[in-house]
């Protein structure tokens, strides 16, 4: 890891301590508050990876990933918000010539959400549809059933149901009524973006894992059972040490490697699985207290599975990785 990345990690950690740490629980209860959007904008995190000609900070891959990693340690919801803007929404808008809207997002005037499916019918006309949405907003990027990626303006109805995780993003099945839709790309564009941002996705998985592991390490130092701290028991100490070792190796890879696409896919695949394992043990070693949201570890357990659903398509992503290794069509049966 170079000095620039380390310095950035330290700075972002300080930012998180000041802006996120104390409200991390509230972020999950009520969605990301406005003051976080303001702080992200002021810090230059929105648009951090984009070229300065587009209003971005022109950070390199490792530096951008350091931001995502460090924020995810405190709030995976906020980290995903930064990722979805920087890696998905802004590149799509810029590619389709929507520079003004992109500038408004970077400056904090506009916010855009994503919806997941390919069920939007009738691009270009007013319509209604129901779909799982991430950060539901009046402006959404969605996928049409004709292979198009569309920017839609409209309204949505809130539902009472909370998502399993990433609750700060208000994920849920929403009913949308569109006023205006316009094509801003094709499905292949978003597919390419998704694969090429594997490093960023891995950074979020690893940041979340670090948050959970650190909590478990601290807790097992002070929590006693049968007269000994939990850390004195070999299954606990060995498992947490293994998890920490795996994490450190993947962090080294994340911050040291070049941005090769295939290596990014490899790391993402490992980091996605790892996050589920790490958060599960972290909760388990908190015992009953881990089951309570006030201890802040159950959030990571939920978020790891939610992030896997949102960022790791178990079949598709494994096939893409397999095809990059075999250099041919593979893993399709």
């Amino acid at each position: 890891m170079n000095d620039q990345v380390q310095m950035l990690l330290d700075n972002v950690k300080q930012f998180c301590e000041q802006n996120i740490k104390d409200i991390a629980l509230n972020i999950e209860r009520t969605r990301i508050p406005d003051k976080i959007f303001t702080a992200l904008r002021e810090q230059g995190f929105i648009g951090a990876n984009l070229p300065s000609s587009s209003g971005g900070a022109d950070l390199d891959r490792a530096s951008y990933d350091a931001i995502l990693f460090q924020i995810a340690e405190y709030s995976p919801s906020v980290a995903y918000y930064v990722y979805m803007n920087n890696s998905i929404i802004l590149p799509l808008l810029l590619k389709s010539g929507k520079k003004e809207l992109a500038a408004d997002i970077i400056s904090g005037k506009e916010r855009v959400g994503l919806s997941a499916g390919n069920i939007l019918e009738g691009v270009g006309i007013k319509t209604t549809f129901q779909e799982t949405a991430i950060f539901p907003s009046r402006l959404m990027i969605s996928a049409g059933n004709d292979g198009s990626i569309v920017l839609l303006k409209g309204t949505f109805e809130e539902s009472g149901r909370k998502s399993l995780g990433l609750r700060g993003l208000g994920i849920g099945i929403k009913s949308f009524s569109t006023e205006k839709t316009e094509e801003i790309g094709r499905k292949e564009d978003i597919e390419k973006i998704f694969v090429e941002s594997s490093w960023e996705q891995a950074a979020i998985f690893l940041g979340l894992s670090q948050g959970a592991i650190e909590k478990a390490v601290e807790y097992t130092k002070v929590r006693k059972t049968f007269n000994f701290p939990l850390k004195d028991y070999s299954p606990v100490a060995f498992r947490l040490s293994e998890l920490k070792s795996d994490l450190e190796m993947m962090k080294f890879y994340l911050f040291s490697e070049d941005g090769d696409r295939e290596k990014g896919m490899m790391l993402k695949t490992r980091a996605a699985d790892f996050s589920r394992k790490a958060t599960k043990y972290a909760l388990q070693y908190h015992g009953g207290y881990g089951y309570l949201e006030d201890f802040g570890v159950e959030k990571f357990y939920r978020d790891s599975v939610a992030l896997n659903a949102v960022m790791f398509r178990t079949d598709v992503d494994r096939r893409i990785l397999a095809e990059s290794i075999y250099k041919s069509k593979t893993g399709y049966i």
Binding site: S163, L164, N308, A309, V310, R313, T314
Partner: peptide, 10 residues
């Protein structure tokens, strides 16, 4: 949850 992906979240 892994099998159902995004669908299972809500």
């Amino acid at each position: 949850m892994e099998i159902t992906g995004m669908t299972g979240l809500s």
